[in-house]
Amino acid sequence: MATAGRERDSGDGAAAGGREVTLLTREGCGGCDAAWERLDLVCKEFGIAASAVDVDAAAARRPELRAEFGDRLPVVLLDGREHSYWEVDEERLRADLAR
Rank of each mutant, 00 (worst) to 15 (best):
G80P: 02
V55I: 05
F69M: 00
G28Y: 02
A4P: 03
A2W: 09
V88K: 04
E64Q: 13
G31Q: 07
E87G: 09
L39H: 13
F69D: 00
E87L: 12
G28P: 01
R38G: 04
A49K: 13
F69Y: 05
G13I: 03
I48G: 14
L78P: 13
D71N: 08
V76N: 05
R19S: 15
L78S: 07
Y85L: 15
D56V: 08
L65C: 01
D33R: 13
L24I: 02
L97I: 14
D12V: 06
A35Y: 06
W36K: 07
T3E: 09
D54F: 02
E20Y: 00
G11S: 05
E27P: 03
S51N: 12
L23K: 00
E37K: 14
C29Q: 03
D79W: 04
G70N: 04
G30A: 11
D79Y: 02
E20D: 11
A14N: 08
D9F: 09
R94W: 11
P63G: 02
D9T: 01
L39E: 06
G13F: 02
A4I: 08
E45S: 12
L93R: 15
R8L: 12
T22L: 10
R61M: 00
D96M: 11
V88R: 02
L93N: 15
E68Y: 03
P63C: 01
L78R: 12
L65M: 03
R99E: 15
A60T: 13
R99A: 12
A57R: 02
S10I: 04
A50G: 10
G31N: 12
D40G: 10
E90R: 15
E37H: 08
P74L: 05
E7G: 09
G47S: 09
L77T: 04
P74S: 12
R26F: 00
E87M: 07
G13A: 07
D12N: 07
R92D: 12
A4N: 09
A98G: 14
V53S: 03
D40Q: 11
V55R: 00
R99P: 13
E90Q: 10
A50V: 07
G47M: 10
T22I: 14
D33G: 11
W36A: 09
V88D: 01
A58Q: 02
F46R: 13
C32T: 06
I48R: 10
C32D: 04
R72V: 08
E7Q: 07
W86R: 15
C29N: 03
E27V: 14
L97K: 15
G47Q: 09
A52D: 02
A98K: 06
D89F: 02
F46T: 15
E20N: 06
T3W: 10
G31K: 10
D54M: 01
D12K: 11
G47D: 08
A14D: 08
I48Y: 11
A2S: 08
A4T: 05
E90W: 08
R38Y: 03
L73E: 00
T3F: 05
L41Y: 15
A16W: 05
T3H: 05
R94T: 15
L41D: 15
G5M: 08
G17R: 08
A35S: 14
R72K: 12
G31F: 15
